[in-house]
Amino acid sequence: MNTHHDPAIITAVLMAAEGAINRGLELDPASARDLADLSGTVLAIECWAPALEVFAIVEPEGRLHLTPYCEQACSVRVRGGLNDYLALTTAEDPAVTLINSDLEIIGNSAPLIALQTLVAKMQPDWEAPLVGVLGDVAGHQLANLLRQIFQWGEASSKSFRRQLSEFILEEGRLSPPAAELEYFYQEIDSLVLKVDRLESRLKRLAQRLKTPAR
């Protein structure tokens, strides 16, 4: 139970998130149908810093209900700190991050993986609400424009990240390249190995010197 926070604030945040998710599902009927197959699943998300507990309940109509309080038995519970959850949301491959991170998964992980797959596959038809409001022609044109803006934004973001990486590694020499780092680490490993061997030889030698000659 979330005893440290004002329930009205948590409820407001969850209502907004629930509304956005369910609106997205309305625009992607295939995902809504897939979600309906998971009906009855209760996912508990527990964060210990800040202390917060949220439940996601899959409803039979293929909608998600988010609540700060639930008395139903949880199908799966995920525990972790805020950093772990942030890393998960920004990860390129959330499934791998989920397994390799410090997040603790308790219960049946199958519905969690199914939910994760569903989110990854989701493709809401953003054109539908625009066409509904503006009509076929204007709605389609605006949707195309928005699609181009998003694509440009995505491409620009990728390009910026690549160029920033090149500047840091190649031009500014602010950080060593990955291959150089890898070679450095191998050298360290090799040095550690040699030092260990030398240490054991010295120990053996010291042992021999201590032992009286026969």
């Binding site: 329930p7 009205a8 409820t11 209502m15 309080y69 639930c70």
Partner: peptide, 15 residues
């Protein structure tokens, strides 16, 4: 509009 949040939380507590 906050009364909707208060009522929603009450409904959650009712289980």
């Amino acid at each position: 509009g906050i009364h909707r949040l208060w009522k929603r939380f009450t409904i959650e507590l009712s289980a």
